[in-house]
Structure formats: structure tokens, C-alpha cells
Design a protein around this nucleic acid. Structure first.
Lengths: 201, 201
DNA sequence: TCCAATTTCGACCGTCGGTCGATTATTAGT
DNA sequence: ACTAATAATCGACCGACGGTCGAAATTGGA
């Protein structure tokens, strides 16, 4: 049990790195087992299929991010900071930087889609709780909180993940965020500082 | 020239149907050429790769939808009707029904992603023009029209494509649409009738 | 020590996207 | 009408891929 689980985690780590750097489709099982120094049979002793392994890798990432977000939610920060902190948790930027870009390459369409689905499921409740806190504190005024949060997350990931977005995009997004949550105009402007700067043309 | 283009279109049609019904990944080149009654070499005489053929299929779909949308834009409808008409054009519901669902199966993640990118590029200008018309007519009040339109399309496709969305989702979406475009509260409620009814649980 | 469960091994398989040289239709110039 | 060039078709073949399987090795408790 102990030994087996350790090997499984080891394989997960190796695959995690390779999926992100080369893409899921472009990473062959042969490459993974070569990097791990094991035989084909051993790989399929721990994972039913390559795709099932992808699910496991994603689950690993989501769990780590959700844990970080829960820590933020339970902290003593002011509500707006919590909002930002939770959203920041939803990015796998923890230990490495180029992960963001990797997710958005076409060869990772499947990974990205699956990742976003599960990320949404995990983060809508957390963010909703923070927003409710804001409503109680008089910061926000809105109903249908989970739905609004879902749209915000959807928009945010769709907009920023792709990398290409303009100043105008950011302005409108912040405007949408304020009206969506019923916050005072301009009160969310501080988010602008959190948005990554212009990269490629 | 004439003969070749005809065969190319024929292959495109066959692939279009198979990609949607079985998924891009699950459709093999062998299946396509068998359905078309041609040899492998002939297929690769017309298409450089399977993926390049996917691009061509998507281009075909987009073109048809954009043409329909342009017709709506140039028509004499009142502006709100145009909005709805253009958005309706963006769905391949014209001749077949199960296409919607097919796009959203995980095996079509790539097709779906590419489709949405190109659909956005084609439809943001068209919808923006309709919105500007609305602004001139005093229906809407907003700046940054292309960015707002982009977000609307992003949200709409993300929300409705997945199939699962609630009454609350629709309410919030319409609310977002009104505030995003600066329309009078409730003025976009008529859209609710256009939204597909509840399908699966 | 012995046995049974766990773990590891790698040869092998069917399928896939793609290549290539040969072959047949089609076209155009004289 | 003949022919040379061009367009179109063919299918055997290839390497890479994800996945299978029976056997061998390792482990740990009685």
C-alpha cells in the first residue's frame, strides 16, 4: 500500500511536468515510462489508461489549488483581498511559471477544458462564500450569487487565460464585475494591479 | 480545377458529418476514405493532414454562419431582433439538431475550441455593428462596444453550449446583458423565449 | 521456510496518421 | 489525332502510438 502509492505519486509528478511542458497529446506513454525508468506493464498496473492518468493529474492540481483557496477564505483578510486571493489560488503558478502558457496551447485543449470544468466546480462555492461575506458587510448587493460568481470565473478564465487581452478588456471586465456584484463603481479598480501585463502581440 | 474542387467539397461534407457525429478524434482517416470510396493517397492529395482538414471543415461552417448573420444585419428588422438573429446564426441548428451536443463532447474539445475562436473573430464585428445601431437609436448606452460584445458572446457560448444551465443562469445572463450594453432593465427579457428549454438533468 | 499477494517486466498487438513511387485519367499544344 | 505534360488516383508500406498479457521477480506474514 505504502510503496505502491508512492510510485503512483511519482508517476503523477512526472506526467504532470511532461503534460504541461509538451502537451498531453504530445507526451507518449513510452516517454513517461522512460523518464520514470519502469516498464510498460508497470505503468498500466497503476493507471487504467493514459486518459485516466490525465484525470488524476488534474485532480491533483485542483486539490492543491482548492486547499490554498480555502486557506485564504478562512483567513482574517478583508473581503476584497480574499476575493483576489481565492482567484489567484486558481492558477497553478505556485512552483513554476510557464504553466499558464502551457495550458492554453492548442495541444492542451482537452487538459484545459477538463481543468476548467473541475476548477469551476471547486471554486464557485468558495468564491460564493466570500461574496456572501461581502454582501453581509455591505460591500456588495446581489442575489443569485453562485450564478454570478460562475459567470465571473468563466469570463475571467476565458479572457485572461488566452493571454491576449487589451486594456479595454480589463476596464470592461472590472466594470462588469462591479455591476454583477452590485459593488460601488470604481471599488474593484484595485484588481487592475493583479492582472498580468501585456505579453505578446 | 473544377473536378478537383468538387471532390474536395465532397470530402469536406463527409468529414463534417463524421466529425460531428463521432467526434474528430474518433474519426479515422481510413473511415473517411472508405465512406468516400477513395484511396489513402487521394485523401492526402487534397489535404495535407487530418488536422488541416479539420480547419477546412470549421472554416466551411463559420463561413455559412457568418453569411447568415450578415444577411440579418443588412435586413430591415428592428435592432433587438437583429441582435437575436445574429446570435442565432452562430449556431449550426439550421439543418441538423444533434450538432450542438456533439460540439460539447469531450472528444471534440479541440474542434470546439478552434470553432469558438474563429466564430468570435467573425461575429464580434457583426454584433458590434448591430449594437452600434442600437446606441444610435437610443436603445443602448455604452462604450468599448467590441469588448463588451466579445464578453457577451464568450459568456453565452460558455454558458449555453454546455447544455446545463438553470433558470437563474438565464436571469443573471439577461441582467448582465442589459447592464453591459446599458439597456433599460427588463428590455432584454424577450430573449428568454429564445433560450432552449431544459434538456437533461 | 514457504506460499500467496503484490509489483515489475517487456514482447507483442491492432490501429492510427502519414509517405511514396507507380499508374491512370485529363488536358493542351501542334 | 498524336503526344507530352499535368492532374488525379491508387494501395502497399512505415513508424509511432496506446494498450494487453502471461510470466518473472519481489515482498511480507504465518
Amino acid at each position: 500500500m505504502k510503496k505502491g502509492e508512492k510510485r503512483r505519486q511519482e508517476l503523477l509528478q512526472i506526467a504532470y511536468r511532461m503534460f504541461l511542458t509538451q502537451g498531453y497529446e504530445n507526451t507518449s506513454v513510452d516517454e513517461i515510462i522512460e523518464a520514470a525508468g519502469i516498464a510498460k506493464g508497470t505503468y498500466y498496473y497503476y493507471f487504467q489508461s493514459k486518459e485516466q492518468m490525465l484525470e488524476a493529474v488534474i485532480g491533483m492540481m485542483i486539490e492543491a489549488e482548492a486547499t490554498a483557496a480555502r486557506r485564504v477564505l478562512a483567513s482574517e483578510m478583508p473581503t476584497p483581498r480574499k476575493l483576489v486571493g481565492i482567484i489567484a489560488s486558481a492558477r497553478p503558478t505556485q512552483d513554476e511559471q510557464p504553466i499558464e502558457a502551457a495550458l492554453n496551447q492548442p495541444e492542451n485543449a482537452l487538459l484545459h477544458k477538463r481543468m476548467r470544468e473541475r476548477l469551476l466546480d471547486a471554486f464557485v462555492p468558495l468564491l460564493s462564500e466570500a461574496v456572501e461575506e461581502g454582501v453581509r458587510g455591505g460591500l456588495f448587493t446581489c442575489d443569485h450569487i453562485p450564478e454570478r460568481v460562475k459567470m465571473l470565473l468563466l469570463l475571467g478564465s476565458e479572457l485572461f487565460d488566452e493571454g491576449r487581452f487589451t486594456e479595454a478588456d480589463a476596464d470592461v471586465f472590472i466594470d462588469v464585475m462591479e455591476t454583477l456584484l452590485g459593488a460601488a463603481p470604481g471599488s474593484m479598480g484595485f484588481i487592475r494591479a493583479l492582472i498580468p501585463q501585456r505579453g505578446r502581440a
